[in-house]
Design a protein around this nucleic acid. Sequence first.
DNA 1: TCTGGCACTCGTACGTTCAGAGTGCCAAGA
DNA 2: TCTTGGCACTCTGAACGTACGAGTGCCAGA
Lengths: 344, 344
Amino acid sequence: MAGEVRQLDERKLAVLRAIVQDYVGTEEPVGSKALVERHNLGVSPATVRNDMAALEEEGYIHQPHTSAGRIPTDKGYRLFVDKLAEIKPMSAPERRAIRHFLDGAVDLDDVVARTVRLLAQLTRQVAVVQYPSLTRSTVRHIELVALAPAKVMLVLITNTGRVEQRMVDCPGSVGETVLADLRARINARAAGRRLPEVPGLLEELPALFEQADRPTVSTVLATLFETLAEQNEERIMLAGTANLTRFGHDFPLTIQPVLEALEEQVILLRLLGETADAAMTVRIGRENAYEGLNSTSIVSVGYGSGDESVAKLGVIGPTRMDYPGTMGAVRAVARYVGQILAES
Amino acid sequence: MAGEVRQLDERKLAVLRAIVQDYVGTEEPVGSKALVERHNLGVSPATVRNDMAALEEEGYIHQPHTSAGRIPTDKGYRLFVDKLAEIKPMSAPERRAIRHFLDGAVDLDDVVARTVRLLAQLTRQVAVVQYPSLTRSTVRHIELVALAPAKVMLVLITNTGRVEQRMVDCPGSVGETVLADLRARINARAAGRRLPEVPGLLEELPALFEQADRPTVSTVLATLFETLAEQNEERIMLAGTANLTRFGHDFPLTIQPVLEALEEQVILLRLLGETADAAMTVRIGRENAYEGLNSTSIVSVGYGSGDESVAKLGVIGPTRMDYPGTMGAVRAVARYVGQILAES
DNA sequence: TCTGGCACTCGTACGTTCAGAGTGCCAAGA
DNA sequence: TCTTGGCACTCTGAACGTACGAGTGCCAGA
């Protein structure tokens, strides 16, 4: 509302910015006197106190007890992130290091593993990287292998290098020629297409086969469609949990629910899922749906091999985090991973 | 030495056992009076005190400060585990629950995932499960797929259900007939054999092909051998890190190195590697080579589809843990996973 | 060899005090 | 109307002293 904006003139915003920066640095409530000393605001502590009172009135900061300094609230951080901070770009050496570190990767697993460790190191927080999602990728190749007369292995390879395999139990024994035929037809139609499109493209395939082979063909296709649609197989990689120890003073209480959340891939996937595809998303404290993460913030962004994002990655840390730096690291890493994926 | 054994008569051992049990339960140093009250030792506190003094002299227990009770040392736990405790068998309902929980698994990933969560839940500690190792498994099938004229995908499927795939860049384009021939010959010789044997069995294969195809054949075989030998690909799954919060009072200090160790698969693999194949191994406190785990104990055991173990699993917790219960759970879970693997 | 008694040690909990940081408010000045 | 210096007030945290109690070690007696 206009009312709120009117209340917050330039200087009050500067005060809020200073409070956030100091608190993130020192981890201690910041008072008016220290504030004017560390930042040259050009006004007296008394003036700052008045501003602080106003900021508290509006709910941007809060004091733990009467005779203490102020701490930003979730709302305060939100304003800081939205209006007062700029994403801090990585320095040239940092960019080189990122590039260099990721370039050594040999396969998709390795890319993801390196990415997540890198992100954890750069931000000194917990990093999360989602494997390139099946649904956004395209088919590179689909392979069928007869393992036994009535047992076929189905292998799906995507453009991002991801490989999924499934066993198919067929209703009857499967001839090698039928299998070869099926393989050829599937690949002719599906190669290069996005995964969700594929079922539509293969719908009439059984009709092209002889009556006797149709049950087999249908079974194989059914398994393929299942694999394509499988959302559960979305995987995630984690790193940097040891950084949780730098969380806060009231330690075990804060950290336990976080560790629990981190073990639940479902929860993490849902959190990342809330990320807007292109733009960077920052969820602060209670903005997180999952209450175990109420005192953490999540910075996440999509990454992809082209202009489109195929998966998400991000960082989880205390609400009291260095947002500009974290956002810079997340953005830079996402960008480079995208490039790596595009190249391979 | 005989000297040490002579020092420790029946009652002293009973006292040590009681101290371990109480301390594990209460997490607090245990004194002579409380001891005689909780266990009916049939002697007075004063007698117990004398025994305690002897036990301390021998290095089995230790008191944090003059007017405190006693705490078992690593050496004390060692004696307890070796001589004083029996593995506590799971109750019938527990066994049923384990069975039921594991039976639902659909593939190898799922088996491992369920196992590790189950173990974490049962023991309320951090559980570690190693994927069935490649080197101990046998070949079920090896598949070659032409993806491009000079690009072949190699897929290795083991009897434990594990699947490894590799891309092979061939020196020249590969004919489909050559590939089919190679595939057939490889499988004829390798199927059912243990992985380390395979290279020896395929050694003369290139000689059976025409001069022109030999480089390709050799390249494919080289990649296959590499895959077979690959020790790095040993994977591990973790669960129950949230249980670390129940570790102790001096929290952040103890937990951080543990979290760091848990992130290093190499370290975990080495730890599990020290497990004797069949027998259960217990490493207590400083017995662990890795110093970050100096205040933890590791209970591990091999598991396998037959009588031979193909991988290890275990539990990591504070030295102050319920050894009989933990060992019982580890043994039971290992046994059932073995059965599941054998069935599939 | 065991037991009861006793003096001793030492850590913890508790109450008190004190200094310092930080605030809110007010009246004066720009 | 906004800013500033001054002042009284509040509250936390550290420091200190005390009392309590748990637990021990030792000794003399059964």
